[in-house]
Design a protein around this nucleic acid. Structure first.
Lengths: 217, 217
DNA sequence: GAGAAAAATGAACGACGTTCAAAAAACCGG
DNA sequence: CCGGTTTTTTGAACGTCGTTCATTTTTCTC
């Protein structure tokens, strides 16, 4: 409903430029305040009145630039996804062995989750009201994560069809996510992080080794 | 409001028997009503006033038999865990190949999650207020699930130390959970269930095959 | 600069989990 | 059985939440 892309430089000529700039600025301040609130106390700590106070606006102003808090939470999630993608970016240099690269991604994912626990949690904890599906722009942000896994998989399994590899990338991502997710879960018996990382390595190495034995699917 | 039938025979012997029986009955009715509410509309659909209406008691009565709604949710979760454990019980007959048994458990887990999606989700969606740790009785209910995985793992890796196997059981459970969890996640691009099950099989088979190649850890 | 249009405001609304003074029920010695 | 005491149950009330909308303030147009 509210796509404001106008971040033009001149304010006097274009009608509504000042307003759009203020709206964009308010959006940014609200996302920043929301991210800080979630980072501090989880999704439960995201309160409309606190947000308004932190961003220096009225509570009603939130609803001028976002449909509702769910909308704001999705933007925070997109931010988190972008930072995660950035944190998993491949370092320069020659491409390592596929299994080593997969392991690097898995450990990077764990590292990110550990460092930004509350924000990372919010990615999966949050449910859209009424079971609505996530907007397309959010799904695209996610698919970039799976793509990071797909590249080393292609080198590991050159005979695998591309469609099958895409599924496999999501599966491997999901498996690593599961280990990290339940590993950091406070409702389960706690796990030392060093052990968790060793288990992650065992999962990725065993899975990668086993994959090369299975027939292509 | 509530008619209490006086049996007359047991009221004289046990002091407070009638009271504790009513409390136990109320607990059961509240858990049943809560489970129905969660099954219908997720954790968000669990409202104190609705619960009281469904169980035929005052809102305050909930707090006579539960600390708070978190407490009630944990009981619902324990119920769900018990039904899951029951659904994963090994069928009679000779023990199959370890990998096949692991696959059966994974598919059983997926089947349960699919059939009781909202209740299964509630197991992981729910966070205790203030980041409190889960009570011991709840952790014990969970550990029984990991134990189901440990048995076939012991046959698959007879040279693995028991402590390492316990970790591995939790890791494999977590990996399968991750695939099921993100597979059924509505905030991700949807996955057909048949494909999801095939991916689950690929994960378990590759992991089991790869494990036998890795050195014991 | 004045009048029209658009945006920002914050008090008000309904719903939520939880509490607690009061009412009801259970208990117990005579 | 009864009257006084204790325990349990009750539901109106409280504080907080996300969200709305009549009012005020700002921006735009001529």
């Amino acid at each position: 409903m509210n796509d404001v892309q106008k971040t033009g430089s001149d304010s006097a000529e274009r009608p509504g430029a000042k307003t759009s700039a203020r709206r964009a600025d308010l959006r940014a301040r609200l996302v920043a305040a929301g991210r800080a609130a979630v980072a501090e106390g989880g999704l439960q700590n995201l309160k409309a009145r606190d947000l308004a106070a932190a961003a220096g606006c009225a509570v009603g102003a939130i609803y001028n630039v976002f449909d509702d808090l769910d909308d704001l939470i999705l933007r925070i999630g997109a931010d988190t996804l972008a930072r995660l993608e950035q944190g998993l970016a491949a370092p320069p240099g020659p491409a390592p062995e596929p299994a080593e690269e997969l392991l690097r991604l898995a450990c990077g994912y764990f590292s990110f989750a550990r460092a930004d626990k509350a924000l990372w949690r919010a990615l999966f904890e949050h449910r859209l009201a009424g079971g609505r599906p996530a907007p397309a722009w959010y799904l695209e942000d996610q698919s970039r994560l799976f793509a990071l896994v797909e590249a080393p998989l292609a080198r590991l399994l050159p005979d695998e069809p591309a469609s099958s590899r895409a599924l496999l990338a999501r599966t491997l991502f999901s498996a690593v996510h599961g280990v990290v997710s339940l590993g950091l879960e406070e409702k389960l018996a706690p796990m030392p992080e060093a052990i968790l990382e060793a288990e992650l390595e065992r999962l990725v190495r065993a899975f990668a080794a086993g994959l090369t034995l299975l027939p292509p699917g």
